[in-house]
Design a binder for these strands. Structure first.
Lengths: 141, 141
DNA sequence: CCTATTACTTGATGATGTCAACTATTGAGG
DNA sequence: CCTCAATAGTTGACATCATCAAGTAATAGG
């Protein structure tokens, strides 16, 4: 049924993490809609940190989608005044994206809503939560 | 920054879980494409278990999307012979979906690829993995 | 310079997703 | 029975998402 590099639990742990991701994805549309965003725009805003401008190509890589798709996403976000395109000084082919103050505020609101812990997290004791943080950090590198 | 029903770790644990979900989402398109599926079709197939037919409306609820969207998704999957629509006997307004043998095989291949654990899981000891399974089970109910 | 590569845009096309309007069926009263 | 409202799904219109192929501008290497 599944590869197991570290015993039978490997598989189950990963299965549960994937199940968790799917469940998480299901409530993103509603959450995004409250801020007049689409899920794709949320993914983009999540990656674009306020104090760290990013070239469009790098964003396409992080989203693992085509560069032309990023063009359209950025068109719509820029027209709403949430971010700016600016030609890079070193390489004028490159367009660097940076959040406007408005965009930074919207991003903060988005992240706060997304990461506000659900009541089920209370089922884990503080020590368990510490252990969970420790493990997830290692899984994410 | 975030609500903390159980101390400062609550927030971080959840943040990491959300980050994990986002990272996970990024490699779904490529994985789905190997099976000639779209991400949305993967979500649908994941929910439709081979031995448990499901009404379209219930599927729309589980995907948290509009019913008319399910119509289109099902149209395409049905035209590929992956599932069948059948009018329910008790209530003929209801269309019950069931996987064909072909659809069940594709679903199995999909789930196997999605849940095959990445090498980073090897960073957790077997006891840690057991603890992780235990915690995720409680988070997911 | 000349040429190839790179970063982004554009246009075409199909899939996803929502909404409003529609059909068919069910169910509750009168 | 016979409305009449509610429900399940479909359809059509429309915007967004996503890819591909082709195009433009800038860079880099020879």
């Amino acid at each position: 049924m599944c590869a197991k590099p570290k015993g039978p639990q490997s598989c189950e742990a990963w299965q549960l993490l994937v199940r968790f991701s799917f469940a998480q994805r299901a409530n993103l549309p509603a959450l995004a809609a409250e801020l007049e965003l689409s899920p794709a725009q949320c993914y983009l805003l999540n990656l674009l940190e306020p104090d760290r401008p990013m070239p469009m190509g790098q964003l396409a890589g992080a989203l693992s989608c085509d560069a032309s798709n990023v063009t359209g996403l950025v068109d719509r976000l820029e027209s709403r005044g949430l971010l700016r395109r600016r030609a890079s000084d070193e390489d004028r082919r490159v367009k660097v994206l940076s959040l406007t103050p408005l965009g930074a505020r919207l991003r903060a609101a988005l992240l706060e809503r997304m990461t506000s812990p659900p009541p089920t997290l209370g089922r884990l004791s503080p020590e368990e939560q510490r252990a969970l943080v420790n493990m997830l950090r290692r899984l994410l590198e």
